[in-house]
């Protein structure tokens, strides 16, 4: 199980990296943490002719905060995010998510943006991105463009990133002081990709839900929100009944694909169960009676 040969590039500036991508396009792959790319190559399921390693470029592992919005650079590792005070304070949902990502020995190398760019529908970060409405910045040698969360994930392991672009930034909008959140998932084994998981955010003012996001992973070909369920919550008081009603909508709306680890019926059921659990866990932190 050894990767096929490739041309290895280790540029020292982002511009050099972008120039390489401009030159090699589809034949090139960006290497950040490598936790998805390297096993795919070892299995010879991925065989880029060129690998562009971002590891030698300074300044890509920054976590910054501005007006409450938190931005992460492309070399921010999951474990770095897990320990970041800035994230703990300003992006509590991201902080909540990190311990769910694989195992520590993966998190120490794997990058947050790499997980987003890979777009695995069973991974946590794409769901966090769509739940929060994060903004993604794709950079190529011809410039930068921002992509809204809702536009980014296009299909199974397929995103809006072009082959000459690098995902250089994700910015999570300022976290409202009235928001609560949770990440819940069920996997076959601890640390596995989820059978189904849900990222929940609720904005609650005066005991009324004013905004809600329910973003599912492992439930479709991409991370997916169920707006009908979200809408059902908005305007209501957070309660077990309201949560169960949302769960019923979710279980009806989603039709997750079956695989050897779980049937469609199972995953539908689980999506419903996790909706209630996720909503309950989200409000637990503020003690709203469920």
């Amino acid at each position: 199980m050894k990767a096929p040969p490739f041309i290895y590039h280790r540029p020292e500036t982002l511009d050099d990296a972008l120039a390489l991508l401009a030159e090699h396009g589809d034949e090139a792959k960006v290497l950040a943490g490598g936790q998805s790319l390297i096993p795919l190559m070892a299995l010879r399921m991925g065989r880029p002719a060129h690998v562009v390693d971002l590891g030698a470029i300074d300044g890509l592992a920054e976590i910054t905060e501005a007006d409450g919005a938190v931005s992460l650079g492309p070399l921010v590792r999951h474990e770095q995010a897990n320990r970041s005070d800035v994230i703990a304070q300003h992006a509590p949902l991201v902080a909540q998510t990190m311990p769910h990502v694989a195992h520590r020995a993966i998190r120490t190398q794997g990058t947050v943006l790499g997980s987003i760019a890979h777009g695995d529908p069973a991974a946590e970060m794409p769901a966090v991105v769509i739940a929060t409405g994060a903004t993604l910045t794709a950079t190529s040698s011809s410039g930068e463009r921002t992509i809204a969360a809702a536009e980014f994930f296009e299909g199974y392991l397929d995103t809006a990133l072009r082959s000459d672009e690098i995902l250089t930034d994700v910015t999570f909008p300022a976290w409202p002081s009235t928001a609560v959140s949770s990440v819940v998932e069920v996997a076959r084994r601890h640390g596995d990709y989820a059978l189904v998981g849900v990222v929940t955010t609720l904005d609650i003012t005066d005991d009324i839900v004013t905004d809600a996001a329910l973003a599912y992973f492992g439930a479709a070909s991409t991370a997916i929100r169920v707006s009908a369920a979200e809408q059902s919550l908005i305007g209501s008081s957070p309660s077990r009944e309201a949560f169960d009603a949302a769960a019923t909508i979710v279980a009806a709306e989603l039709a997750p694909p079956a695989d050897i680890h779980g049937s469609t019926a199972y995953r539908k059921h689980l999506a419903g169960v996790l909706t209630t659990r996720g909503l309950t866990a989200a409000v637990d932190s503020i003690g709203v009676p469920a």
Partner: peptide
Amino acid sequence: GQPSRSCLMLAAQAE
């Protein structure tokens, strides 16, 4: 000092 899977890193990344 951080635990890492040595099968999931290119040697070149260990520079």
